[in-house]
Design a protein around this nucleic acid. Structure first.
Length: 556
RNA sequence: GCCCUAGUAGCUCAGUGGAAGAGCAACAGCCUCCUAAGCUGUAGGUCACAGGUUCGAAUCCUGUCUAGGGCGCCA
């Protein structure tokens, strides 16, 4: 437990025993005391609403209850300096803030592990995200999914979960045949033949390029081959090239998957057949109209779903159920899917499938990444992956920058629609909030450089009791909130809580920086003490920025 | 038609039972001083609308309106 939590626990315990002593309620009737941090400093360091909660039980006005409680509290036990009763019955606590100094050594000792907790209890969690079809470039929506998914994984890891990042490769469906035919057409065109693109072909520039390269390398070799040989070749080639590109784009974006899981492998290993058999044994399916249906409506879905079509081929759902079964068989206790908004209607049937297989409903969590609308010059731009008219992840990295892009996507809660104005992102990149946070870090580094130049040597033994101003305490309090912020972000699957936090921490530091000097040749002891504070802030910022995949520059 | 998500400051968005917030834009100040990509202050809100539950609702419930998405033996 960190210092802030310890202090909060002490205050809570004091409140609980004061409520009992004042004979307001018996201990078993006492609701769990909530201690929150008021947004406004005039409401103290911590506040509780316990008096209002007790109003019903005690049949007394909240403010009177608050007075009773505070009269029976032993202030000396919990660093309390002053207590005020305010508003409808809030009890506000003003603390002797010197306890905050203890945060400094705890951060410095933990270093890159500061913020780590064990709320996840080492639970095995699998997060599947991006999983874009390998038929073209990753676009804006995938970029959002990648940024959110990767940040979430980092956060879960720091909160004590055992995380595996996984990408599901849809390499078995019609779209791959379509890809093969598209590559074929581009190849033939590059050779000067008269070849039409398939009706639902992929019109991206990447595939044109493949065609060109193939023509240069192989000439008419595949134009003359049998259709069967030709398609098999283009299928494999297209898939290989698309996957290479995809992996590289994601790696450059800072996203490194642990597992690349092939849909085809499910068929090859007989997993699809096996899963269907299991569902049959469990009597979760039935025959109708020549098709095999899954009784998903038994588990809350609107209607039943086809698994095997009347032409004997599988629907997309079938291998996907097999895939989820496989996930649990690999020992994951919790499976998190991060899907695009266009798949949200799919959630009830997948949840039904997981239950039909005999797993618990809450072992599957699906997070929806809402649509990203692209705006340029104030006008909405229609995007289509099929026609290749889309802003790609690569475009974003080159034009907007990796740090700004990742921060931008991480800072919004994933389940809200997002307007992305490309012109704004590019032209106003200096005003992007990411620079505010990065600038704070660069300033911290600058202070350290200045200190070194002036002959100060970092002293781990420096006396931090000299850290005692209001601004310093504000910064320290923020630093102290980091571990619980990470834990909360993990619990809520909410990476944007981290960017919010980083902005607040940077703000507290900028404010301190403008008010007071760190490096002061006139006061060696104070400088040394403040350098420890600086180091603690730097460590916290770095750890937080790492969570969302943003770099911490030493100079800007 | 049914389902999902959203509607909070001029704009982009946090907050999801407890005292209305941030960034940008606007306005007024702050660099002989560790990076002004910064700081300080001002202004800006019947939290879409109408009911309900509650001591207390932006937050929970019901209904309505608006925007986007989903409802296939496609993936």
């Amino acid at each position: 437990m960190n210092i802030v939590e310890q202090v909060k626990e002490r205050i809570k315990a004091e409140i609980a025993q004061a409520a009992e002593k004042a004979e307001i309620v018996s201990s078993e009737d006492l609701p769990s005391v909530v201690l929150e941090t008021p947004k406004d400093k005039v409401h103290g360091d911590f506040a509780t609403n316990v008096a209002m909660q007790l109003a019903g039980v005690a049949k007394k006005a909240p403010r009177l209850i608050a007075e009773d409680i505070t009269a029976h509290m032993d202030k000396s036990k919990a660093s309390i300096e002053k207590i005020e009763i305010a508003g409808p019955g809030f009890i506000n606590f003003f603390l002797d803030k010197s306890y905050l100094r203890d945060i400094i050594p705890s951060v410095l000792q933990a270093g890159s592990d500061y913020g780590r907790t064990n709320v996840g209890e080492n639970q095995k969690v699998q997060v599947e995200f991006v999983s874009a079809n390998p038929t073209g470039n990753l676009h804006l929506g995938h970029a959002r999914g990648a940024a959110v998914g990767d940040s979430l994984c980092n956060i879960l890891d720091m909160a004590g979960y055992d995380v595996t990042r996984e990408y599901y490769i849809n390499d078995a469906g019609n779209q791959i045949t379509n890809l093969a035919r598209s590559v074929e057409a581009r190849y033939l065109q590059a050779l000067g033949h008269d070849a039409d693109m398939p009706e639902d072909g992929y019109l991206g520039a990447d595939i044109q390029q493949f065609g060109k390269e193939l023509a240069e390398e192989h000439g008419n070799r595949y134009a003359d081959a049998s259709e069967e040989e030709r398609l098999a070749f283009f299928r494999e080639y297209g898939l290989k090239r698309e996957m290479e590109k995809l992996k590289q784009d994601l790696l450059d974006f800072g996203v490194d998957f642990d597992v690349w899981f092939s849909e085809t492998s499910l068929y090859e290993d007989g997993k699809v057949e096996e899963t269907l058999q299991l569902l049959e044994e469990k009597q979760e399916v039935y025959q109708d109209d020549g098709a095999v249906w899954f009784k998903s409506s038994n588990y809350g879905d609107d209607k039943d779903r086809v698994l095997v079509k009347s032409d004997n081929s599988y629907t997309y759902l079938m291998p996907d159920i097999a895939y989820h079964k496989n996930k649990f068989e690999r020992g994951f206790e919790k499976v998190i899917n991060i899907w695009g908004a266009d798949h949200h209607g799919y959630i009830p049937r997948m949840r039904a499938a997981v239950q039909a297989l005999g797993y618990q409903k809450d072992q599957l969590e699906t997070q929806i990444i809402q649509m990203v609308n692209l705006f340029e010059n104030g006008e909405k731009v229609k995007m289509s992956k099929r026609t290749g008219k889309a802003v790609t992840l690569r475009d974003l990295m080159e034009e907007v920058g990796i740090d700004a892009t990742r921060y931008f996507f991480a800072m919004r809660s994933a389940d809200t629609h997002l307007d992305f104005d490309l012109g704004l992102a590019k032209s106003q990149s200096n005003e992007n909030p990411v620079y505010y946070v990065q600038y704070a870090h660069a300033r911290l580094c600058s202070i350290c450089r200045q200190a070194e130049e002036k002959g100060f040597v970092y002293d781990p033994e420096a006396d931090i009791s000299l850290v005692a101003t209001e601004k310093e305490y504000d910064v320290l309090k923020k630093v102290g909130e980091f571990p619980e912020t990470v834990a909360l972000a993990a619990e809520k699957y909410a990476p944007h809580r981290i960017t919010n936090y980083l902005h607040e921490l940077a703000s507290a530091f900028h404010s301190f920086y403008n008010a007071e000097r760190v490096v002061d040749s006139e006061d060696e002891e104070k400088t040394k003490a403040r350098l420890k504070l600086v180091k603690a802030v730097q460590t916290t910022l770095q750890n937080g920025m790492k969570l969302i995949g943003v770099s911490a520059p030493e100079k800007m």
